[in-house]
Design a protein around this nucleic acid. Structure first.
Length: 625
DNA sequence: GCAAGGTC
């Protein structure tokens, strides 16, 4: 008969359910947790090598169990000078909506010998694990604490993890604790200071929170940066030589190897020399096979970039819809950095589920009939979740318009991953019209393969090139000198913004869309459909006068490290890493960073007039001539 | 009324 009791706790209900299912082998009972809509307790027996035959309760939390906030005496914004928030007393609290979940853990811990933690194996997961541990100890101060090391919920992998528990990584939990404290203190101090000192400048700012955050400000910075580049752009005239030759009734455009030059006299001289040469000589005729690679397995960042580019939705909407599809069991977990499928995953089974689909079912069938290829593997693996993929077929009518678009994208992407690259043949012809070189490029798409299902990628055959022989000479039909102007860059688009955030470590895959939404809600930026976007209607970002005023104001303050650039956030990331590697303690990092931000704060306070001038110039005087 | 990070 089972002796000891083991309490297992996962980061989310879906993991608890999957793990319990594998360990219980079908014999388990499910109990609702009073007061929590999503969390369930699964009970079964299991024979752990380490603890023997045990009664197991497997349950979960919903992400973080606790939050950090200032002591209630600082609740009122005027209760203290904002600078005091750098050292004000804080408390760890359990949110009202998490009370029942926390109580469940304490209750279950009371009779358990061991707490076995099954949170995701990443930094945040380690911290969530420490929150769970603290809660379990409240119910049973003598409980033993272990954690499972797992990176997916395949049966064998889960069983292996149950066999070899490890310890919680205090360092990773501490790194997150440092991040939480710094974000709170710095965010609240600057937000209150900015709002209280700038709001009185104009009635337009009434009821407007002027927030600062280590992610939202650099995000705004990217938008403003591009705005300046667009605004400060001065078109430049350039000149170029174009050669055209007509053969077999095909007009071939030869492009100048120098593309264009900004010196008219120089181009004129070269052009005249070309004309003097009269005859062009073919110096290269090359045909070579060319592939267009099928896409990599889908990550969250990629879903947001491509979604905001092709689906007429913004990244925030794409994520909200993906979350819904996940909850309904149609797609896999939508927050992942992994762009490689595990070797042992049965991808063909997933392809097979799409055969019945009326639009791409036939394509899925063709993969099963021999077209299937193992997907390319990218370089990223978060060791927690597989790439985003469809897990079940969805009948027509089960989804609303936006859900349909996202599900379609995820599925087409998945099928494309399991397909062959597109194949083509490229022709390059180079001619010399002494002293200059020109070239023409042609492409014939021979096999479309993945392109047939992945309608978002375009790869088209160009006009057929006539035959040219190496070494032959001919007199070009036309040679012209023309001019043109450089064109201004365009405003930042949503996919570009997400790409910049990703490259600079601003936010996580799960929060980038929220930061973008936040700077819209704060009236720092506006979006509009980019002109000429055609069917796709990608959004472009333009800062508001308020957004420009804030960034310019801080520039005028003359800080050593700009608050609108990604450096400070990057530094915090490095410090978290230092904690994880044991090179620094949590205290050291918090003290160091607070010291650094205090300095920025003091300087900003001292130069407040610069900030006020900027806001007055843009916001208050807006529209007066 | 502040942040950013989990998840529903």
């Amino acid at each position: 008969m089972p002796g000891q009791k083991i309490l297992c706790v996962a980061e989310k209900p879906a993991i608890a359910k999957a793990v319990a299912g594998h360990l219980a082998g079908g014999r388990l009972t499910t109990h609702n947790v009073l007061g929590s809509q999503y969390v369930k307790n699964y009970e079964f027996t299991y024979n752990f090598p380490l603890w023997g035959n045990c009664e197991v309760t497997m349950t979960s939390v919903l992400g973080h169990l606790t939050g950090l906030d200032f002591d209630s005496r600082y609740k009122n914004w005027r209760s203290c000078p904002p600078s005091q928030l750098f050292e004000a007393h804080t408390n760890v609290t359990i949110d009202q909506d998490k009370k029942a979940i926390a109580e469940n853990i304490a209750q279950q811990a009371r009779w358990s010998k061991v707490l076995f933690i099954w949170t995701d194996c990443d930094r945040e997961g380690e911290h969530i694990g420490s929150e769970v541990r603290d809660q379990a100890i409240k119910g049973n101060s003598r409980i033993q604490v272990k954690r499972a090391r797992f990176s997916n919920t395949e049966k064998n992998h889960v069983i292996q993890a149950a066999r070899s528990p490890i310890d919680l990584d205090e360092r990773q939990a501490n790194a997150v604790a440092a991040r939480i404290e710094l974000d709170l203190r710095i965010g609240a101090a600057f937000t209150r200071f900015q709002t209280l000192s700038l709001q009185p400048l104009s009635a337009k700012l009434e009821n407007q929170i002027l927030s600062y955050g280590s992610c939202q400000f650099p995000t705004l910075g990217f938008v403003v940066d591009r705005y300046y580049r667009v605004r400060n752009f001065k078109p430049e005239t350039f000149w170029l030589i174009k050669v055209v030759h007509k053969r077999d009734n095909i007009k071939v455009n030869f492009n100048w190897k120098r593309v264009h030059l900004f010196d008219r006299a120089a181009v004129t001289i070269l052009f005249e020399q070309c004309l003097d040469s009269k005859l062009a000589k073919v110096t290269k005729v090359q045909k070579k096979p060319k592939s267009k690679w099928r896409p990599l397995p889908l990550t969250t960042v990629e879903l947001q970039m491509q979604g905001s580019r092709y689906l007429r939705m913004n990244s925030h909407e794409v994520m909200a819809v993906a979350e819904k599809l996940y909850q309904k069991g149609f797609i896999s977990y939508p927050r992942t950095e992994t762009d490689q499928f595990a070797r042992d995953m049965d991808l063909k089974a997933l392809v097979r589920k799409q055969i019945q689909h009326q639009t791409w079912g036939q394509y899925a069938q063709s993969l099963i009939d021999g077209g299937f290829q193992q997907p390319r593997a990218g370089r990223n693996n978060d060791q927690a979740h597989p790439p985003i993929h469809p897990v079940n077929h969805v009948g027509p009518g089960a989804l609303d318009a936006n859900e349909k678009k996202v599900y379609e994208f995820v599925t087409r992407r998945f099928l494309a991953c399991c397909s062959e690259d597109a194949k083509g043949e490229a022709t390059d012809i180079e001619i010399e019209l002494v002293p200059e070189v020109f070239h023409a490029h042609g492409l014939v798409v021979l096999e479309r393969n993945y392109l047939d299902v992945y309608v978002y990628d375009k790869w088209e055959s160009s006009q057929q090139l006539p035959q040219f022989k190496l070494g032959e000479t001919f007199e070009p039909t036309e040679a012209n000198m023309t001019d043109g102007k450089t064109t201004a860059p365009s405003y930042l688009t949503e996919p570009e913004l997400i790409g910049l955030m990703d490259a600079n470590g601003i936010g996580t895959d799960a929060t980038m869309a929220e930061h973008i939404q936040k700077i819209k809600d704060r009236n720092y930026v506006q979006t509009r459909p980019k002109a000429g976007g055609g069917r796709n209607q990608v959004q472009e970002f333009i800062p508001t006068v308020l957004g420009v005023a804030l960034i310019e104001g801080y520039d005028d303050v003359g800080l050593d490290v700009s608050v609108s650039k990604p450096f400070l956030r990057k530094e915090m990331e490095l410090k978290m890493k230092a904690i994880c590697e044991g090179r620094k303690s949590r205290r050291e990092v918090v003290e160091e960073s607070l010291e650094q931000y205090r300095e920025v704060f003091v300087k900003t306070q001292r130069e407040l007039d610069a900030l006020k001038r900027s806001v007055t110039k843009y916001v208050v005087n807006e529209g007066r001539g």
